[in-house]
Nucleic acid binder design. Structure first.
Lengths: 326, 326
DNA sequence: TATCATGGTGAAAGCGATTTCAACGACAGG
DNA sequence: CCTGTCGTTGAAATCGCTTTCACCATGATA
């Protein structure tokens, strides 16, 4: 492994000069030229480990996600990766598989360890999370939840759900049911349900609390909840879901119970899933710019890390949404 | 930042002793006890950067994927992450966005840089790739393609496609068309098309070369190719696709042209996508254990890194598949 | 002429671990 | 009593880089 000293000797300079050359310090043009050639000749590439040890910066960003194999998260991750690559950082990915404790674990691991900053794709935010985030020694940006005192990039789920509920209330005749997710997920659980309820109520068609079920983000859980709903309350005519994935499950349930094709205009979701859009022609749903949220969050983080001028640094950013097919 | 020396002083030993304690070297039980307490008291955690510099090992695995926001890849990634977490490694994720040159770039970056091993979720394998893989100074495992001389975990796309083609030939009456992907992707492009053709031929219903189109993995490309096929050859009665995602697009095209519901039994794919399964009741497709391939590849890699006894190390592993809905 | 910036430079001091090495006390065998 | 072995130990070297610091020309300024 060729090291800096070798390059320096070959170029007839000190290793300090080589380091300066690499990092843009004082260096005369002729020495710069000699160093450049020596580097090309030897194929030298500097050890990021030694550099990291010395400078304390690793050019690594820790990314914590609840589940990588989901459409929304993988799009967010794609956005994060785009920016990271463009700006000279790399992504250390931690998948918690929806276990909140593993989230904390990674938060810990990353802090004491090799990352310069953290992007947390958040689901549940407990007090413990808040504490961990606050005491984090590297900058951290949250995606998907709006947490007081932390830098966040999020969508206004309450507002979106309100609009969706309000719009649907007029078009649906008959009973509306709702399949949500755990309210520990403030945005997708609490805000969406509350917003949806408020929207329906505002339109004069309030949601019957007896027709609310809880899913777990998966297609199967949507299917199961919908089957149960349809058997308990056969007169339900519309099932709103907290995610498109669960809506797909509900769709399947309706088709099974009432015949293929019946479900299509009987469910709504969140997320504007591409498969669902193509295969059904489009259910009512909310389009979020997932990729954008990854991009924005990461830019924000790296701006503060690199000390970019004119950027106000870590802040809270609310992104817009779009109602689809209503 | 509390360092090893601090712990050593507090425990009244040398830092060498602390290091030995941490790494399981000679240490008397009473000193071990004192060190243990000192560590707990100070909350010491060792700098992985210093450790990496000294030992040359970072406990980081580079994972190169063509596109993170796709069902198959994100499942593979989930599998990789599972094993990595369990075995004390972390994942450095590089998303190439389907650009082969960025793949090589990362291969380079990772080699000279901080990873102990590499998992490459492969699409196109050029000669340059082969060279890069061969000259790689850290162990590397490929997923998804079978490349001579490299450790691979893959599915037999030819065989699967053959079986699918053979099975379909009997059930479909009328003309069969095929929407493939670039043959630079040996497995998904070349093998699947060849296998499918061979399967049809073996069943006495050969594929008409004029009814072959090329997509680009996306739903929209499947849609576009199918629309074009249907207008050029209106008598086509079945469209086989190289991926479920493109099949979803084709389905939409058929529904548009021939009316909703018509498409469902008129397309096939590869990958057994969950949405497609739920929303259509299941098109003919091939189920691959994507998560499993991530798991197997990563275990193989880490076995060699950690020198696990009784493991033969890097090798080629062919995983099974399963025909669905035929 | 004396003084001062200013652009360049290399020696050397770290960064925080691991690991070699020589040495030590204790104890067994000859 | 001497020697060898064994389990332990800490000093010190090392990993490869960055960065401070003192210092040197050189040309401008007073």
């Amino acid at each position: 492994m060729v090291k800096m000293k070798d390059v320096a000797e070959l170029a007839g300079v000190s290793s300090a000069a080589v380091s300066r050359y690499l990092n843009g310090g004082y260096i005369s043009t002729d020495k710069a030229e000699r160093i450049k050639q020596a580097i090309e000749l030897t194929g030298y590439v500097r050890s990021s480990q030694a550099r990291a040890l010395r400078t304390g910066s690793t050019k690594l960003i820790g990314v914590i996600v609840p589940k990588i194999n989901s459409e929304s998260v993988s799009r967010i991750t794609a956005g994060i990766g785009q920016v990271l690559g463009r700006r000279g950082y790399q992504m250390l990915l931690a998948n918690t598989d929806n276990a909140a404790d593993r989230e904390l674990e990674y938060l810990d691991l990353f802090q004491n360890h090799p990352v310069d900053g953290i992007v947390l794709v958040a689901t549940m935010i407990t007090d413990e999370h808040r504490r961990a985030i606050e005491s984090c020694r590297v900058p951290i940006v949250l995606i998907g939840q709006n947490v007081e005192g932390a830098a966040c990039v999020y969508h206004d789920d309450y507002e979106a759900a309100f609009e969706l509920g309000h719009a649907l209330a007029g078009r649906v005749d008959g009973k509306i049911a709702y399949i949500g997710v755990t309210e520990e997920d403030r945005a997708a659980g609490y805000d969406r349900r509350r917003g949806f309820e408020a929207g329906l109520r505002a339109a004069g068609n309030p949601l019957d609390a007896a027709l609310i079920r809880l899913g777990s983000f998966t297609l199967d859980s949507g299917y199961g909840a919908a089957r149960e709903l349809l058997s308990v309350a056969p007169d339900v005519s519309f099932i709103a879901c907290a995610t498109d994935t669960m809506a797909a499950g509900a769709l399947r349930a309706i088709d099974e119970v009432r015949g293929v094709g019946e479900g299509i205009h009987r469910v709504s979701g969140f997320g504007d899933n591409a498969f669902l859009r193509a295969l059904t022609g489009g259910i009512p749903t909310v389009h979020y710019g997932y990729l954008t949220s990854g991009v924005e969050a990461t830019n924000m983080l790296i701006n503060t890390l690199d000390g970019v001028e004119g950027e106000s640094g870590l802040k809270t950013l609310k992104l817009g949404h779009q109602l689809m097919n209503v």
